[in-house]
Nucleic acid binder design. Structure first.
Length: 496
RNA sequence: CGGGAUGUAGCCCAGUGGCUAGGGCGCCAGCUUUGGGAGCUGGAUAUCGUGGGUUCGAGUCCCACCAUCCCGACCA
């Protein structure tokens, strides 16, 4: 009967799982850690992907496709890369009934096979830049998985660009992070913080990693996208040289950048409530659902009335579902469509038909509006835009309310409270679920690995990134962790 | 890989060594209903996770294994 969603206040983690399963976004698979993406979940991914793809092309990128199997030896060519990915590789040792001479790795990311290929494509500065992207699946054998947020196999895009100069590659790295930042805010309604990762947190094989970081409703951080400046690391590992404008040989400069199906998880976690899924209208499979409310003696008239409203909305380009199922009650339908996250519900019953009205209900606020039927089309546009705006503002307000400056270790400790595991040992039930202490702490940092590692060990708190727009005056203060002279200002948080 | 939990119909669960393994939800058929998760009648659906063992007899007890989920360490 009534599908139950665990309230966030009881168990945030379970709430998230309940949303994903009950809204029919994804299902578990027979293979550990893998997930089946159901049509309602895939529709969100598709809309997200198409819009992002459009923005990639707008910035001069082209799509291509590389194989999912990579010779094992390729992974070993870049020292940090192999160290970073070895523990989580899936390896094919047999195929066609025979043992393979060289095992094949199922790609965890494609830098190696791509740079091996770029070697054959780049001879001169005239061949550059290469601005390529691919939409693909990758496999990382993680110990701990979570629907959408971290699965063994996931869908993503990975951009791999090749450039003449360091400056140009750095500019590309920054450009793509900015594409992600704007996309996150404009489409996903995710307010994000753009910045640079610490040495400890950067991508295996990168010179610099930039990220956008979002805050979930349990105040934990989620890395929503990354853009890497790879320097000449992969060009050197795969011997990709070109003749530059001066006529001498040089190694190619590289970037890579990606976002994954994790973004679907980020959207769910950021906007949804205890009644079910909430998604930004731009991502919703159906923007509106029209629910005719009829009795057996007026069914035909009410259906015709509601259908007219639905047709008008469709004619205006809206994505509209029409729920004329006659075996479930209106109440059931209301709850069901709320669970599915449809941004606007349009009710059309006999009373509305008589008065020439419809009732429009916002998913984000629950607000009910009685609207003249011939104004429904205009009102729908207005409401959808308002919902898109409201979701971003709400998320931003939540994040800002949970972001605090910290000056020293005492303040850091006070801000984050005890670590979760410790709290459980101490018998403090549910600490770390709904009312987890913390959020984003903004503090000065010396740049040292030691105090960063100590913080992680003590509080499970890591440096999310060093926000680009918060570096003014960061030098010359004291590190909030160890008291040494500071070099950066960083966001500290627990994360997914 | 450590800690915890679970495995009985599509889902949730009951079944306390003993006859033909039950219920709720869902599903199918029909009727009746429909403004916040309706009702009646009938119906279909189970290698009780797998393999061993104990026993006259095992869903139930024992052992092993497997799988999944949750929590940690690793990570997009």
């Amino acid at each position: 009967m009534a599908e139950k969603i665990t309230p966030r206040s009881v168990d945030y983690s379970q709430w998230y799982i309940d949303i994903v399963l009950n809204a029919k976004l994804a299902d578990y698979s027979p293979v550990k850690g893998c997930m089946v993406i159901r049509p309602r979940g895939y529709a969100i991914w598709e809309r997200l992907r198409d819009e992002l793809d459009r923005r990639f092309k707008e910035t001069g990128h082209q799509n291509c496709y590389f194989p999912m199997f990579i010779p094992e030896s390729f992974l070993k060519k870049e020292a940090e890369h192999v160290e970073g990915f070895s523990p989580e590789l899936a390896v094919v040792t047999h195929a066609g009934g025979e043992k393979l001479d060289e095992p094949l790795v199922v790609r965890p990311t494609s830098e190696t096979i791509i740079w091996n290929t770029y070697k054959g494509w780049i001879q001169s500065w005239r061949d550059l830049p290469l601005l390529y992207n691919q939409w693909a699946n990758v496999v990382r054998w993680e110990k701990r998985t979570r629907l959408f947020l971290r699965t063994t196999e996931f869908l993503w895009q990975e951009g791999h660009t090749a450039h003449e100069t360091r400056e140009e590659a750095v500019k590309e790295t920054e450009l793509m992070l900015e594409v992600y930042r704007r996309f996150a805010e404009e489409v996903l309604c995710l307010p994000v913080i753009a910045g640079k990762k610490s040495e400890a947190e950067k991508f295996a094989g990168a010179v610099d990693t930039y990220s956008i970081e979002a805050m979930m409703q349990d105040k934990k951080a989620l890395q929503a996208g990354t853009s890497h400046f790879l320097g000449q690391n992969f060009a050197k590992a795969f011997e990709v040289q070109f003749q530059n404008r001066e006529g001498t040989l040089d190694y190619v400069w590289a970037t890579s950048w990606g976002v994954s199906t994790r973004l679907v998880g980020a959207v769910i976690m950021t906007h949804s409530d205890d009644k079910g899924l909430v998604v930004p209208p731009m991502l919703a499979q159906d923007e509106l659902v029209v629910i005719p409310i009829f009795k057996s003696d007026n069914k035909a008239e009410v259906l015709a009335y509601a259908q007219k409203v639905a047709d008008a909305l469709k004619a205006d380009g809206r994505r509209v579902a029409f729920d004329d199922d006659d075996s479930s009650s209106p109440g059931w339908k209301f709850a069901e469509w709320e669970m599915r996250g449809v941004p606007i519900r349009v009710e059309a019953g006999p009373k509305d038909a008589a008065a020439g009205n419809v009732v429009m209900v916002r998913r984000d606020t629950g607000e009910k509006l009685v609207v003249k039927a011939d104004e429904a089309v205009a009102k729908a546009r207005e409401l959808l835009a308002a919902i898109q705006k409201n979701l971003l503002e709400k998320a931003r307000a939540f994040r800002d309310a949970n972001t605090k400056p910290v000056a020293d270790l005492a303040e850091v400790r006070a801000f984050f409270g005890k670590e979760k595991a410790k709290a459980h040992e101490d018998g403090e039930a549910h600490l770390g679920t709904a009312e987890v202490p913390g959020g984003f702490a903004l503090g000065l940092w010396c740049g040292g690995r030691e105090c960063e590692a100590a913080l992680k060990a003590e509080l499970k708190v890591t440096i999310r990134n060093m926000p680009f727009d918060r570096q003014a005056g960061a030098e010359g203060g004291t590190c909030c962790l160890c008291g040494a002279p500071s070099k950066h200002r960083a966001i500290f948080a627990r994360s997914y």
